[in-house]
Design a protein around this nucleic acid. Structure first.
Lengths: 131, 131
DNA sequence: GTTGAGCTTCCCATGATGGGAAGATTTAGC
DNA sequence: GCTAAATCTTCCCATCATGGGAAGCTCAAC
Protein backbone atom coordinates (compact mmCIF):
# COMPACT_ATOMS: atom_id res chain seq x y z
CA UNK A 1 0.00 0.00 0.00
CA UNK A 2 1.41 3.39 -1.04
CA UNK A 3 1.46 6.29 1.35
CA UNK A 4 -1.57 7.84 -0.34
CA UNK A 5 -3.63 4.74 0.16
CA UNK A 6 -2.46 4.47 3.76
CA UNK A 7 -3.46 8.09 4.30
CA UNK A 8 -6.86 7.38 2.81
CA UNK A 9 -7.32 4.28 4.92
CA UNK A 10 -6.17 5.83 8.18
CA UNK A 11 -7.44 9.37 7.88
CA UNK A 12 -3.93 10.73 8.50
CA UNK A 13 -2.50 12.86 5.70
CA UNK A 14 0.53 11.62 3.78
CA UNK A 15 2.35 14.71 4.91
CA UNK A 16 1.74 13.83 8.53
CA UNK A 17 2.66 10.18 8.06
CA UNK A 18 6.09 11.23 6.82
CA UNK A 19 6.35 13.70 9.66
CA UNK A 20 5.54 11.10 12.32
CA UNK A 21 8.21 8.91 10.81
CA UNK A 22 10.71 11.79 10.77
CA UNK A 23 10.25 12.54 14.47
CA UNK A 24 10.60 8.88 15.37
CA UNK A 25 7.02 8.29 16.38
CA UNK A 26 6.77 5.58 13.76
CA UNK A 27 9.49 3.19 12.59
CA UNK A 28 10.68 3.63 9.01
CA UNK A 29 8.37 1.54 6.83
CA UNK A 30 9.39 -0.98 4.20
CA UNK A 31 10.33 0.47 0.83
CA UNK A 32 9.55 -0.87 -2.60
CA UNK A 33 12.11 -1.02 -5.39
CA UNK A 34 11.03 2.42 -6.53
CA UNK A 35 11.75 3.72 -3.01
CA UNK A 36 8.06 4.25 -2.34
CA UNK A 37 7.03 3.60 1.25
CA UNK A 38 5.03 0.42 1.63
CA UNK A 39 2.38 0.05 4.33
CA UNK A 40 0.31 -2.87 5.50
CA UNK A 41 -2.65 -3.26 7.81
CA UNK A 42 -0.63 -3.03 11.04
CA UNK A 43 0.85 0.29 10.01
CA UNK A 44 -2.53 1.68 9.06
CA UNK A 45 -3.78 0.48 12.41
CA UNK A 46 -1.10 2.49 14.19
CA UNK A 47 -1.88 5.52 12.09
CA UNK A 48 -5.51 5.31 13.02
CA UNK A 49 -4.47 5.03 16.65
CA UNK A 50 -2.45 8.21 16.32
CA UNK A 51 -5.30 10.00 14.60
CA UNK A 52 -7.73 9.09 17.36
CA UNK A 53 -5.31 10.15 20.06
CA UNK A 54 -4.82 13.48 18.30
CA UNK A 55 -8.57 13.96 18.24
CA UNK A 56 -8.51 13.59 22.01
CA UNK A 57 -5.89 16.33 22.19
CA UNK A 58 -2.91 14.21 23.22
CA UNK A 59 0.46 15.71 22.35
CA UNK A 60 2.93 13.90 20.14
CA UNK A 61 5.05 13.03 23.19
CA UNK A 62 2.03 11.59 24.97
CA UNK A 63 1.07 9.66 21.87
CA UNK A 64 4.56 8.24 21.73
CA UNK A 65 4.08 6.94 25.25
CA UNK A 66 0.60 5.65 24.46
CA UNK A 67 1.89 3.85 21.39
CA UNK A 68 4.60 2.20 23.44
CA UNK A 69 2.02 1.03 25.97
CA UNK A 70 -0.25 -0.13 23.20
CA UNK A 71 2.53 -2.21 21.65
CA UNK A 72 3.40 -3.72 25.02
CA UNK A 73 0.96 -6.56 25.52
CA UNK A 74 1.78 -6.75 29.22
CA UNK A 75 1.50 -3.07 30.16
CA UNK A 76 -0.26 -2.25 33.39
CA UNK A 77 -3.43 -0.31 32.64
CA UNK A 78 -2.41 1.94 35.54
CA UNK A 79 0.15 3.64 33.37
CA UNK A 80 -2.30 4.28 30.59
CA UNK A 81 -4.82 5.64 33.01
CA UNK A 82 -2.30 7.92 34.69
CA UNK A 83 -1.33 9.38 31.35
CA UNK A 84 -4.95 9.93 30.45
CA UNK A 85 -5.75 11.49 33.82
CA UNK A 86 -2.86 13.92 33.48
CA UNK A 87 -4.00 14.89 30.03
CA UNK A 88 -7.53 15.28 31.26
CA UNK A 89 -6.34 17.69 33.95
CA UNK A 90 -4.47 19.60 31.28
CA UNK A 91 -7.62 19.85 29.18
CA UNK A 92 -9.62 21.04 32.17
CA UNK A 93 -7.08 23.72 32.88
CA UNK A 94 -7.11 24.98 29.33
CA UNK A 95 -10.88 25.00 29.41
CA UNK A 96 -10.83 27.01 32.63
CA UNK A 97 -8.45 29.55 31.12
CA UNK A 98 -10.55 29.97 28.02
CA UNK A 99 -13.67 30.23 30.10
CA UNK A 100 -12.11 33.01 32.14
CA UNK A 101 -11.32 34.91 28.98
CA UNK A 102 -14.76 34.32 27.53
CA UNK A 103 -16.49 35.43 30.71
CA UNK A 104 -14.57 38.69 30.88
CA UNK A 105 -15.03 39.34 27.21
CA UNK A 106 -18.73 38.54 27.26
CA UNK A 107 -19.22 41.04 30.03
CA UNK A 108 -17.41 43.72 28.12
CA UNK A 109 -19.29 42.98 24.93
CA UNK A 110 -22.54 43.28 26.80
CA UNK A 111 -21.59 46.69 28.12
CA UNK A 112 -20.58 48.04 24.70
CA UNK A 113 -23.48 49.58 22.85
CA UNK A 114 -21.71 48.94 19.53
CA UNK A 115 -22.98 51.79 17.41
CA UNK A 116 -21.43 54.81 15.69
CA UNK A 117 -20.31 56.47 18.91
CA UNK A 118 -16.64 56.18 19.86
CA UNK A 119 -16.90 55.45 23.57
CA UNK A 120 -16.34 51.79 24.24
CA UNK A 121 -15.97 49.88 27.50
CA UNK A 122 -13.91 47.24 25.74
CA UNK A 123 -11.17 49.67 24.75
CA UNK A 124 -11.53 51.39 28.13
CA UNK A 125 -10.80 48.12 29.85
CA UNK A 126 -7.82 47.29 27.66
CA UNK A 127 -6.36 50.75 27.91
CA UNK A 128 -7.38 51.47 31.49
CA UNK A 129 -5.17 52.35 34.40
CA UNK A 130 -3.16 49.54 36.00
CA UNK A 131 -5.16 47.72 38.57
CA UNK B 1 13.03 54.71 29.98
CA UNK B 2 15.07 51.72 28.79
CA UNK B 3 13.41 48.63 27.40
CA UNK B 4 13.91 46.78 30.67
CA UNK B 5 12.11 49.47 32.65
CA UNK B 6 9.33 49.57 30.06
CA UNK B 7 9.01 45.80 30.34
CA UNK B 8 8.80 46.10 34.10
CA UNK B 9 6.24 48.87 33.93
CA UNK B 10 4.04 47.22 31.33
CA UNK B 11 4.34 43.56 32.22
CA UNK B 12 5.46 42.73 28.67
CA UNK B 13 8.88 41.13 28.38
CA UNK B 14 11.67 43.02 26.62
CA UNK B 15 11.90 40.17 24.18
CA UNK B 16 8.27 40.58 23.25
CA UNK B 17 8.50 44.36 23.01
CA UNK B 18 11.19 44.01 20.36
CA UNK B 19 9.14 41.35 18.65
CA UNK B 20 6.02 43.51 18.49
CA UNK B 21 8.13 46.23 16.99
CA UNK B 22 9.64 43.84 14.46
CA UNK B 23 6.26 42.66 13.21
CA UNK B 24 5.01 46.21 12.89
CA UNK B 25 2.53 46.11 15.73
CA UNK B 26 4.36 48.99 17.35
CA UNK B 27 6.15 51.91 15.68
CA UNK B 28 9.93 52.03 16.11
CA UNK B 29 10.59 53.90 19.36
CA UNK B 30 13.00 56.79 19.85
CA UNK B 31 16.62 55.86 20.31
CA UNK B 32 19.17 57.37 22.64
CA UNK B 33 22.71 58.20 21.57
CA UNK B 34 23.82 54.76 22.66
CA UNK B 35 21.17 53.26 20.34
CA UNK B 36 19.12 52.08 23.30
CA UNK B 37 15.37 52.19 22.76
CA UNK B 38 13.72 54.98 24.72
CA UNK B 39 10.14 54.65 25.95
CA UNK B 40 7.77 57.09 27.62
CA UNK B 41 4.43 56.76 29.32
CA UNK B 42 2.40 56.55 26.08
CA UNK B 43 4.46 53.62 24.84
CA UNK B 44 4.13 51.82 28.14
CA UNK B 45 0.42 52.46 27.94
CA UNK B 46 0.24 50.74 24.56
CA UNK B 47 2.27 47.84 25.85
CA UNK B 48 -0.10 47.37 28.74
CA UNK B 49 -2.96 47.46 26.24
CA UNK B 50 -1.32 44.68 24.26
CA UNK B 51 -0.68 42.64 27.37
CA UNK B 52 -4.31 42.88 28.45
CA UNK B 53 -5.56 41.97 25.00
CA UNK B 54 -3.27 38.93 24.98
CA UNK B 55 -4.70 37.87 28.32
CA UNK B 56 -8.12 37.89 26.69
CA UNK B 57 -6.79 35.59 23.98
CA UNK B 58 -6.79 38.02 21.07
CA UNK B 59 -4.38 37.16 18.26
CA UNK B 60 -1.67 39.55 17.17
CA UNK B 61 -3.66 40.44 14.07
CA UNK B 62 -6.71 41.23 16.17
CA UNK B 63 -4.63 43.26 18.57
CA UNK B 64 -3.28 45.23 15.63
CA UNK B 65 -6.83 46.10 14.68
CA UNK B 66 -7.76 46.89 18.27
CA UNK B 67 -4.75 49.16 18.62
CA UNK B 68 -5.72 51.03 15.47
CA UNK B 69 -9.23 51.51 16.81
CA UNK B 70 -7.87 52.58 20.17
CA UNK B 71 -5.65 55.20 18.58
CA UNK B 72 -8.53 56.49 16.47
CA UNK B 73 -10.45 58.89 18.70
CA UNK B 74 -13.45 58.82 16.37
CA UNK B 75 -13.84 55.08 15.85
CA UNK B 76 -17.33 53.67 15.98
CA UNK B 77 -17.67 51.34 18.94
CA UNK B 78 -19.52 49.02 16.57
CA UNK B 79 -16.23 47.94 15.03
CA UNK B 80 -14.66 47.20 18.36
CA UNK B 81 -17.67 45.23 19.45
CA UNK B 82 -17.79 43.24 16.23
CA UNK B 83 -14.18 42.27 16.65
CA UNK B 84 -14.79 41.24 20.24
CA UNK B 85 -17.89 39.27 19.34
CA UNK B 86 -16.04 37.37 16.67
CA UNK B 87 -13.26 36.55 19.07
CA UNK B 88 -15.76 35.50 21.67
CA UNK B 89 -17.31 33.07 19.21
CA UNK B 90 -13.85 31.74 18.51
CA UNK B 91 -13.25 31.21 22.21
CA UNK B 92 -16.58 29.45 22.61
CA UNK B 93 -15.75 27.12 19.76
CA UNK B 94 -12.39 26.22 21.20
CA UNK B 95 -14.03 25.61 24.56
CA UNK B 96 -16.60 23.35 22.92
CA UNK B 97 -13.87 21.35 21.19
CA UNK B 98 -11.91 20.91 24.39
CA UNK B 99 -15.03 19.97 26.26
CA UNK B 100 -15.78 17.29 23.70
CA UNK B 101 -12.32 15.84 24.18
CA UNK B 102 -12.53 16.05 27.95
CA UNK B 103 -15.95 14.38 28.04
CA UNK B 104 -14.80 11.44 25.93
CA UNK B 105 -11.60 11.09 27.87
CA UNK B 106 -13.31 11.32 31.23
CA UNK B 107 -15.61 8.51 30.24
CA UNK B 108 -12.72 6.31 29.17
CA UNK B 109 -10.78 7.08 32.32
CA UNK B 110 -13.74 6.10 34.40
CA UNK B 111 -14.00 2.76 32.65
CA UNK B 112 -10.33 1.93 33.08
CA UNK B 113 -9.58 0.15 36.33
CA UNK B 114 -6.02 1.38 36.24
CA UNK B 115 -4.16 -1.39 38.01
CA UNK B 116 -1.52 -3.96 37.08
CA UNK B 117 -3.72 -5.73 34.55
CA UNK B 118 -3.08 -4.98 30.88
CA UNK B 119 -6.61 -4.71 29.57
CA UNK B 120 -7.55 -1.07 29.13
CA UNK B 121 -10.62 0.54 27.57
CA UNK B 122 -8.60 3.62 26.72
CA UNK B 123 -6.19 1.75 24.47
CA UNK B 124 -9.09 -0.33 23.17
CA UNK B 125 -10.84 2.82 22.08
CA UNK B 126 -7.77 4.31 20.44
CA UNK B 127 -6.84 1.11 18.68
CA UNK B 128 -10.36 -0.12 17.99
CA UNK B 129 -11.94 -0.96 14.66
CA UNK B 130 -12.93 1.94 12.41
CA UNK B 131 -16.35 3.23 13.28
C1' DG C 1 39.20 50.20 36.38
C1' DT C 2 37.24 46.06 36.63
C1' DT C 3 33.04 43.64 37.01
C1' DG C 4 28.40 42.70 36.38
C1' DA C 5 24.16 44.08 34.55
C1' DG C 6 21.71 45.68 30.63
C1' DC C 7 21.34 46.82 25.90
C1' DT C 8 21.98 45.71 20.71
C1' DT C 9 21.21 42.38 16.71
C1' DC C 10 20.91 37.80 14.90
C1' DC C 11 19.87 32.93 14.76
C1' DC C 12 17.42 28.99 16.43
C1' DA C 13 13.68 26.26 18.84
C1' DT C 14 9.15 25.10 20.12
C1' DG C 15 4.42 21.87 18.18
C1' DA C 16 1.49 20.31 14.68
C1' DT C 17 0.37 21.17 10.31
C1' DG C 18 0.62 22.46 5.66
C1' DG C 19 2.32 24.63 1.04
C1' DG C 20 5.12 24.14 -2.61
C1' DA C 21 9.28 23.09 -5.62
C1' DA C 22 12.13 19.85 -8.25
C1' DG C 23 12.72 15.50 -9.81
C1' DA C 24 11.60 10.45 -10.40
C1' DT C 25 8.00 7.09 -11.29
C1' DT C 26 3.67 5.04 -12.04
C1' DT C 27 -0.86 4.97 -14.18
C1' DA C 28 -4.39 6.10 -17.54
C1' DG C 29 -5.97 7.46 -21.97
C1' DC C 30 -5.49 7.11 -26.75
C1' DG D 1 3.89 2.55 -27.40
C1' DC D 2 3.57 7.48 -26.31
C1' DT D 3 2.07 11.30 -23.72
C1' DA D 4 -0.18 13.46 -19.87
C1' DA D 5 -1.71 13.33 -15.28
C1' DA D 6 -1.28 11.57 -10.86
C1' DT D 7 1.64 10.09 -7.21
C1' DC D 8 5.73 9.42 -5.07
C1' DT D 9 10.48 11.18 -3.24
C1' DT D 10 13.21 14.82 -0.48
C1' DC D 11 13.91 19.47 0.97
C1' DC D 12 12.83 24.09 2.41
C1' DC D 13 9.66 27.42 4.19
C1' DA D 14 5.51 29.28 6.83
C1' DT D 15 2.45 29.46 10.54
C1' DC D 16 1.80 31.75 15.93
C1' DA D 17 3.62 33.56 20.18
C1' DT D 18 7.27 33.02 22.91
C1' DG D 19 11.79 32.38 24.53
C1' DG D 20 16.94 30.86 24.76
C1' DG D 21 21.31 32.11 23.81
C1' DA D 22 25.58 34.11 21.50
C1' DA D 23 28.58 37.99 20.36
C1' DG D 24 29.50 42.53 21.06
C1' DC D 25 28.70 47.23 22.96
C1' DT D 26 27.50 50.33 26.98
C1' DC D 27 26.50 51.75 31.52
C1' DA D 28 26.61 51.79 36.66
C1' DA D 29 28.69 50.55 40.97
C1' DC D 30 32.39 49.63 43.94
Amino acid sequence: MNIGAAAQASGVSAKMIRHYEAIGLLPPPARRDNSYRDYGEPEVHELRFIGRARKLGFSMAEIGALLALWRDRGRPSREVRQLAVRHLADLEQRIAELRGMAATLAQLVECCHGDARPDCPILDELGGAPR
